[in-house]
Design a protein around this nucleic acid. Sequence first.
RNA 1: GUGGAUGUAGCUCAGUUGGUUAGAGCACCAGAUUGUGGUUCUGGGGGUCGCGGGUUCGAAUCCCGUCUUUCACCCCA
Length: 456
Amino acid sequence: MEKPTLPKGTRDFGPAVMAKRQFILNTIRTVFQRFGFLPLETPAMENLSTLTGKYGDEGDQLLFKVLNSGDFLKDIDASKLETRNSKLVASEISEKGLRYDLTVPFARYVVMNRHEITLPFKRYQIQPVWRADRPQKGRYREFYQCDADVVGTDSLICEAEIVLMIKEVMQHLSIHDYTIKINHRGVLNGIAEQVNASGRESDLFVVIDKLEKIGEENVRNELSEKGFAAQQLDKLFELLKTAGTAQQKLNILSTSLASSTSGKKGIDDLKDVFKLFEHYQANSDHVEFDVALARGLSYYTGCIFEVKINNVAIGSVSGGGRYDNLTQAFGSKEQLSGVGISFGIDRIYDAMEELNLFPKETLASSKVLVCHFDDATRHYVLSMLTRLRAAGINSEVYPDIAKLKKQLDYANKKNISFCLVIGEEEIQSGSLTLKNMERGEQEKLSIENIIHKLTH
RNA sequence: GUGGAUGUAGCUCAGUUGGUUAGAGCACCAGAUUGUGGUUCUGGGGGUCGCGGGUUCGAAUCCCGUCUUUCACCCCA
């Protein structure tokens, strides 16, 4: 008999892990709801035509494809099969794929349901996504994203609120040392114009994004290899090295990029976002304007965000941005602008575990275990169990007749706070033994008093 | 997708130049204690040494393949 295993990059989540995951998840959901977002779920599978072409060539390769049902090779051209080139037949034997993120399915939903959606439409979505990536630390093949997006408005209030939501989530999770990086595709395009690299933006941005990680020297080398001239690179780094506070950097760049329409738009948008924080009477702590932030997904057109937890060796825990044309990819004639944020709870979990930030209460299960000694006391105990539950107290009974030691041991392992011990003596007197498992103290009380004590 | 490392009990790991019946700590089960857990003491169960092949009188140990996990690259939550 073979031992069962899990597919590469997937995991089970046992009760102890689930308690912590749900703590994160509930925090994010509560914040999303507080900002007026409504829930949406979409299928795990989408038509491949919905998914392909939205994430760039790299992204397409990472899509999990689902084989057609039935005898899927029956009608395939024999000569194509002869070539042994799976790409040739892929589109004919697979027409569905697992979702790669939540933004594209959301855009598809908006287009399909355009008639019954009131704009601006704010939705949140918490579901797993799948990527056929090679797993490593903080990178899984199945992981959860928690997205909140707004479509149908280009108001920068949405961008500002995204930052406010990130801050609120982080605060509730007790994560204090983190950075929200913000940039704008317009600024990046403006920079590309300034260094005469229009049309080669993606080549440029992918490398720029690695600046912090690999340093100026390596970025220069990679870009020269891609054919950028030393003169262009000098100009590039002059712009990238703009220093100071967010305000100062914005002011400097607004003159450096003044000749670029998209650069100017980017700077103005960012200035407005920072100004909005003031109107919200919020500060811009943790928010950093990073000219080198470039996020890979090709559909972003406006502000882009990324959140990193400091002093943890894990990638970004959240990312997002504005996209103007996503619905047009699904044949929508009107131009709907959208902006969204995505939290990766698997990475937040790993970071919190590493930083020891989980409150210990997340482990708690039932509050009370009712204990008994024999058939008769076990029968009696069931009626007490019903009363506890009716009072809203999470409680359970040890189902087998067992020594008290074993029952207390069970409660101890399950982190149950109280044991209600009921034997002949307690049934006779009506005064039941309530044992506090943490302190080891116990007292005799009526069921009414016990319920009162545990609910107040 | 490319390159490197890894795998021994549920967990963390020992295991000599290839040599008898593969060990420890923690965890688990039972007893010490017939109505009192988390401490202590005593005893116990648990391994196809990732899997498959090869070399050898003999393999956890050496070789090849494969899978898992992991690190770097690519990319990303």
